[in-house]
Amino acid sequence: MTAIISQDDFLVFREYFYRKTGIRFESSKRYFVDKRLIDRITANDCASFREYFTRLRFQANGEELQRLTNLLTVNETYFMREEYQFDCLTSHILPELSEHLPTDKIINIWCIPSSSGEEPYSIAMQLLENWPMLRNRDVRLLASDINTRMLDMAEEGLYSERSIRNVPPTWRARYFSRVGDMYQICDELRACVEFSHVNLANPVEVRRQHAIDVVFCRNLLIYFDDLSRKEAAESLYDVMSPGGFICLGHSESMGRISPLFTVRKFPEAIVYQKPWEES
């Protein structure tokens, strides 16, 4: 017998998931959510949504919540997406930071969400190929996601032709090897991205990072509601170094989220900056 999700069940679940993740599902997403809930209800041998929901809420290790979260937060992306920001990173953001920071200071770059790794690996290639100053400066690449399945895939580094369609042929030859129908990212790149599990809606988890100089937080905040978005921006501000930059997705505007950051115009992109000092 298949469980049925009533309108009330949907609303109760939506509120709960929102509190946990900051992500609010519109009613138009009802089908998407119901289908995944029913899959998990069946997998857990529960007789009803109520029974499943109780298990979800009171399970001490949170394993079921993580599984469900993995199903509900799949964020499809590809290599070199919104590439103009990576150009901005190497042509303007990093040169400007290098000028201000002591030469021995490590520059920390953090991708959240990392999804299945396309973005942090794209940044790694961009730095190796297009930022000669990397010879004189240490850079640490950090990447986090709420979805543990995505993190496993990112660590594994196996991608489809479709996913790497925007990677230039010379880069492909240098950083990927073919495995059947798939492309394996090389060990050199895998060894330099540090993946971790972080829920952006939880300030305590966000604070596992610190002294971040550049944040890429693209196409995630659009799924948050206004207040959660503001809280997320404040959490990021908290773990960034003074003068640090934040890049959002092209349809996202910090102007509608929080006044904490200053707007910076570069030829390639508009990005946001934490002030060097606050008055």
């Binding site: 505007s253 910090m254 707007v263």
Partner: peptide
């Protein structure tokens, strides 16, 4: 149009 000064700034710079 822009709905506040921050968004105005973004548009004016763009």
């Amino acid at each position: 149009e822009a709905v506040n000064g921050m968004e105005g700034l973004e548009k004016a710079l763009e």
